[in-house]
């Protein structure tokens, strides 16, 4: 693995990354949270879009591995003075950094950067395209919830996951739609028709089953319900439901929570309480929201280690 641009990866590679993250996860229980594996490496967090949790998660991950981590945000950098992505990337590379974590509103920006700067690039979310570390941390949190301490080496075979919300515009949904099925999970996409991706010739969307009725999917008793952040303000002028319509049809309300059974309640954050899910659902025992955040650090440590620890060609 030379870069992490997409969550599309072979099953073995995904399991190996999750296993590595499992070992990294042990650092959470330690007083001294520092491993020397990336000592002397420099990682730049290049964020052209606002982000608190993803950026700080990468920053903590890098620092716990002893890398030097520098944050460069779009605002206040030369990008706001009109510098191109290529020039910004080459400038940062010229300072001698070993890897770049990039978030951009432009789908495909990390892939271009990877071509230009000749060192490892990690996609921390690009437009409506992908957010691979989010999918990895979702898979990690789900695998842990199901298998507990025996999670190492396991996949998600037969685990039924419903992803609910604005699937078409969600990079989180897209990356999960690639990764979870590769691990054996059965994924159903759920949302208003206007939020579902365009169907392929065989009727599947992103190669997966899609449903418009959340109630029907809840009746199937899935193992996990992944609720996406809904940004109705972004949908102005489109054939999108109002907030009221969305809550009626697709929110995890108290009433739906009561029918959910033992399903894990997942959310990538930040949550809109009362919109994607009720406050009670957000704080339920079945909610994995905070476990996902913790998993994020471990998964990003695994990714940084995999891409930056070795400098030999054989590992790339």
């Amino acid at each position: 693995m030379k870069h992490l641009l997409t969550a599309a990866m072979p099953r073995d590679e995904a399991i190996a990354l999750l296993d590595l993250a499992e070992d990294m996860h042990q650092i959470q229980d330690r007083e001294l949270k520092k491993l020397p594996a990336l000592r002397g490496r420099t990682v730049v967090n290049l964020f052209f879009e606002d982000s608190t949790r993803t950026r700080s998660s990468f920053e903590i991950a890098g620092k716990w591995l002893s890398a030097d981590v520098i944050n460069v945000s779009g605002k206040g950098s030369s990008a706001s003075k009109g510098e191109s992505l290529r020039d910004t990337g080459l400038t940062i590379a010229a300072m001698g950094v070993d890897g770049v974590v990039v978030r951009s509103g432009a789908s495909g920006a990390p892939a271009l950067l990877a071509e230009w700067i000749g060192r490892p690039v990690i996609n921390a979310g690009d437009g409506t395209h992908e957010h691979p570390t989010q999918a990895l941390l979702d898979a990690f949190a789900l695998r842990r919830r199901i298998h507990g301490d025996a999670a190492r080496g396991r996949a998600l075979d037969g685990v039924r996951v419903a992803i609910v919300g604005d699937i078409a515009h969600s990079r989180v949904a897209r990356s999960n739609a690639l990764l979870l099925p590769a691990l054996g999970a059965e994924v159903t996409l759920v949302g208003p028709a206007a939020f579902l991706p365009v169907p392929a010739a065989d009727g599947t969307r992103l190669g997966l089953r899609a449903e418009t009725s959340l109630d029907a999917v809840i009746d199937e008793q899935p193992d996990a319900l992944m609720l996406l952040r809904v940004q109705l303000e972004r949908q102005a002028g489109k054939v999108a439901p109002s907030a009221g319509e969305y809550i009626t049809g697709w929110s995890l309300t108290d009433e739906r929570l009561a029918r959910l059974g033992g399903a894990a309640i997942m959310h990538p954050g930040p949550m809109n309480r009362g919109l994607e899910l009720s406050s009670r659902a957000a704080d339920a025992d079945a909610s994995t929201v905070l476990a996902q955040v913790t998993a994020g650090v471990s998964v990003r440590m695994a990714v940084l280690y995999s891409l930056l620890a070795s400098t030999t060609e054989a590992s790339r």
């Binding site: 296993d19 499992e22 990294m24 620890a309 070795s310 030999t312 054989a314």
Partner: peptide, 11 residues
């Protein structure tokens, strides 16, 4: 770590 292919860890 630097000079060898990426090593997998163990628990």
């Amino acid at each position: 770590l630097r000079g060898r292919p990426t090593r997998a860890s163990q628990p």
